[in-house]
């Protein structure tokens, strides 16, 4: 019997619709896969969209070499489970110059992520790239269309976005231009967690609390994930019960002290907290107001 669909069921259907439109209307799509919880949900939706076929596009991980080890493990497994090709791209120049988050600050993100992404998209000639950004994350993202156009140099022009009516998406573009597609635009952080719970989606264990070695730096709790982390004078990693609300490069991602070891507990903690999700990311802090918009104009995802 027909019944009222839940909010999550509607969101799921909407996202699947978007993913299929892209496959039908673009030449060479790719899914940006960052191994975080949003990527996990997006990948799951792609599997649903094309079942029983595997999703007809590869996954692309723009690697910085500084992700948490646990992320690399899940990345390889998730791609294999989905039956999808996994492309890993590392910016050669950043590698040669030894760009790292400790010595190079914002340049680290710029070269590994922003430049790396552009290089990878150019290298493989992808004309459409799925990304797992949500509108509730940040105020310039709240303004972005589901189908977001990029010039041949990957720039975003926020003042000149295409109208996007109903669920009709215009995927036409000139040679060299590309589209970023955000199938989970309308999901909130809570939606993501609930969906992970209801669909039993595997996520990186770092989202759950466990005793882990950390040092405190500039007000952030940084996990010492491998031996590359230079310790400052007097810094001694200590074991604390921590978890992460968002995952990126380990030296740039702040942990929270927590005892939440199950999904329900994580969700509960998230709902009781009074600070926003991206607060733990050093990257959003460095340029202040409007920084995300600026990054996007320059080609950050």
């Amino acid at each position: 019997m027909a019944r009222a669909l839940t909010h999550l069921e509607r969101l799921e259907a909407e996202s699947i619709h978007i993913i299929r439109e892209v496959v039908a209307e673009t030449d060479n799509p790719v899914m940006l896969y960052s191994v975080g919880k949003d990527s996990a949900v997006m990948l799951h939706l792609a599997k649903k969209a094309f079942y029983p076929s595997p999703p007809p596009f590869p996954l692309l991980h723009v690697d910085t070499t500084w992700k948490f080890k646990a992320m690399y493990d899940l990345r390889d497994k998730a791609a294999k489970d989905a039956g999808m090709e996994l492309l890993v791209y590392q910016n050669e120049e950043a590698k040669e110059r030894g760009i790292n988050p400790f010595d190079h600050g914002p340049l680290h993100t710029d070269m590994w992520k922003t430049e790396g992404l552009k290089q990878a998209l150019n290298l493989y000639n992808f004309d459409a790239a799925f990304g797992g950004a949500r509108r509730d994350e940040e105020k310039s993202r709240a303004k972005e269309r589901v189908f977001s156009f990029r010039s041949a140099s990957h720039g975003w022009d926020p003042k000149n976005q295409r109208p996007e009516l109903w669920n009709l998406y215009n995927a036409k573009k000139a040679k060299g231009e590309s589209i970023r597609i955000f199938p989970i635009s309308n999901w909130t952080e809570l939606d993501i967690w609930q969906y992970i719970q209801l669909n039993k989606i595997e996520i990186v264990p770092l989202y759950f609390s466990a005793p882990r070695p950390v040092v405190e730096r500039d007000g952030l709790l940084i996990m010492v994930d491998d031996e590359r982390m230079p310790l400052k004078d007097g810094e001694v990693p200590e074991m604390r019960s921590i978890r992460f609300r968002t995952l990126g490069c380990y030296p740039l991602t702040g942990a929270v002290e927590s005892e939440a070891a199950t999904l329900s507990e994580v969700i509960q903690e998230m709902l009781l907290t009074t600070t926003s999700e991206r607060q733990g990311r050093a990257i959003d802090k460095d340029a202040g107001d409007g920084s995300m918009e600026k990054k996007k104009q320059e080609g950050y995802f």
Partner: peptide, 16 residues
């Protein structure tokens, strides 16, 4: 949320 909006005190595009 857009820089141009904040500078001019107007809304240019839809925010969700």
């Amino acid at each position: 949320g857009l820089a141009a909006e904040r500078e001019q005190g107007i809304t240019i595009d839809v925010a969700y």
